[in-house]
Amino acid sequence: MNTDTLQTVWAPRILSVLRIVAALLFFEHGSQKLLGFPPTENPPALLSLSWIAGALELVGGAFLALGLFTRPVAFILSGEMAFAYWIGHAPRSFFPVLNGGDAAILYCFVFLYLAFAGGGAWSVDALRAGRGSPTPIRNV
């Protein structure tokens, strides 16, 4: 396998894997806040800041998992995570490892990357544009 194959064939596929895994983990945060699964002790009040965050996480996570409207959804979610960090984590401590904000920072920058890189080969966006990979992985 040469570097051309890695760049042209595998990079878009691995981009899709990154998008799917990050989206499913993010979706779980929304499902916990809004649907109570996995179970949580303190569900957010309707239309509170936490409830709105949960709605963005649930709907945005689903859209990103599918790779549908990847760029605008990822941009919005990146902003949500920046907002969450500065409002909810940074006031606790300067250091992310102490304020519990390291996941918010990672989500923020992964989503910012997806806003520019797109959804990869295995996305609804790519299928709609005619450059998707509907066939299974083949040996190259």
Results as ranks from 00 to 15, higher is better:
S16C: 02
G54Y: 05
P43D: 08
A11N: 03
Q32A: 15
L6F: 14
G100R: 01
L114I: 03
S133L: 13
A104Q: 05
S50H: 11
F26D: 04
I105W: 02
P134W: 05
I14S: 13
G132L: 00
L98F: 08
L58M: 13
I52N: 11
V9N: 11
L35A: 10
A104R: 03
L112V: 06
I76K: 04
D4W: 02
S78I: 03
G119C: 04
R128V: 04
R128A: 12
I105S: 09
R13A: 14
S93M: 04
N2S: 14
G118T: 00
Q7A: 15
F63E: 00
F63I: 04
L98C: 00
F75S: 08
R71E: 01
T70D: 10
E28S: 15
L24Q: 12
L64I: 03
G132M: 07
P12M: 06
F37D: 02
G132W: 02
Q7G: 12
D102V: 08
V17I: 15
Q7C: 12
T70C: 01
L46K: 05
T8N: 13
Y85I: 09
K33L: 05
D4C: 11
V21C: 01
L127D: 05
W122D: 03
F94T: 13
N42L: 12
L25R: 08
L35W: 10
P44T: 07
A115D: 08
T70V: 10
L24H: 07
P134G: 06
S78G: 14
E41Y: 07
E28N: 14
F94A: 14
L58D: 06
L47A: 15
K33S: 00
V17L: 15
P44A: 04
G100Q: 05
R131S: 14
L18E: 12
L34Q: 09
A45L: 10
Y113D: 07
S78T: 02
V110E: 06
N99V: 01
W86A: 02
A115F: 08
L6G: 11
V9D: 13
D4Q: 12
F37K: 09
S123P: 02
V110T: 13
T5M: 13
P134D: 03
F63H: 08
D102E: 15
N139S: 14
A11T: 14
T5L: 14
L46T: 14
L127R: 01
G118R: 03
G67S: 10
F37M: 14
L49D: 14
I105N: 07
A23P: 03
Q32K: 04
A103L: 15
A53P: 08
W10C: 02
Q7V: 11
W122Q: 11
E57H: 12
H29W: 11
G118V: 01
V97R: 09
A84E: 04
F83A: 15
G79E: 01
A82D: 05
G30D: 10
F37L: 15
P12A: 06
L15K: 09
P43H: 02
V110G: 01
N139C: 06
I20A: 12
A104Y: 00
D102Q: 12
L49S: 13
F109C: 00
L64R: 03
L25P: 07
W51I: 15
G54P: 12
V97S: 09
L98N: 14
A104K: 04
L64G: 10
V9F: 09
P91S: 05
